[in-house]
Design a binder for these strands. Structure first.
Lengths: 111, 111
DNA sequence: TATGAATATTCAAGTTTATGAATATAGAAG
DNA sequence: CTTCTATATTCATAAACTTGAATATTCATA
């Protein structure tokens, strides 16, 4: 992490952070981490109504974070930039605590 | 990274992301990563005018991300939540590319 | 081609966030 | 107590983001 390296990318980094900085969008990304999921399934899993969910999906798509693929009647969304999962992981460790994050990785060294 | 774990923290996570999602704020955090720095030094290092810099410092302080300590005439700012450096690191790897990030760690395995 | 299920889009508030200009405050030094 | 340096604050405007309501589109199937 170096200032001179970051300087030319500060705008991009800001844009990226803002593109995911929304409760619904974070949850969507989390839900997509293991592969494509249909809008309907996201609706059920996250408990979010169709319209607001679709609105956030549109933003994620507009930023190139996710992409949708039609399969018959449904549209399956998938993460288009796997590298952002790294940010999600760090974020979860910060907000959910190291315990939960470590548990996710299978390192349940009980304290 | 699990939906059920993240759900109750989605609002907090969003707030955290937004609190750092600004070019100046990102650069400030990067500049503080190795210890306290005075406002004047930040001004010089980042090439940002005093007023806008102070405005962003105020926001970071209001969110509890940094804290300032007076030493005589100057105020030295430091990171109050070291855990966010992890997010910064991930972010840098994403926006600056793995090459730069690895180089930072000393793993210059030329491709 | 009509119908139903799944998903997307538009629009209009309302709210937050960013930016620049002007200025205020706090402490050091004389 | 005045002056200088360092830093903070206020304010107004502009821009971006969020949300809900209403509705449109797309495809499958009959």
């Amino acid at each position: 992490m170096n200032i001179e390296d970051l300087k030319p990318h500060a705008e991009d980094a800001t844009k990226l952070l803002r593109s995911i900085a929304h409760p619904t969008r974070l949850l969507v990304l989390c839900a997509l981490k293991d592969g494509p999921v249909s809008v309907g399934a996201l609706q059920d899993t996250l408990g979010i109504d169709q319209v607001p969910l679709s609105q956030q999906l549109m933003k994620l798509r507009a930023e190139g974070i996710v992409e949708g693929q039609r399969r018959g009647n449904q549209i399956f969304y998938a993460i288009a930039r796997p590298d952002i999962l790294q940010i999600m992981q760090s974020l979860q460790e910060v907000v959910c605590g190291p315990a939960v994050a470590a548990q996710q990785k299978g390192q349940t060294h009980a304290a």
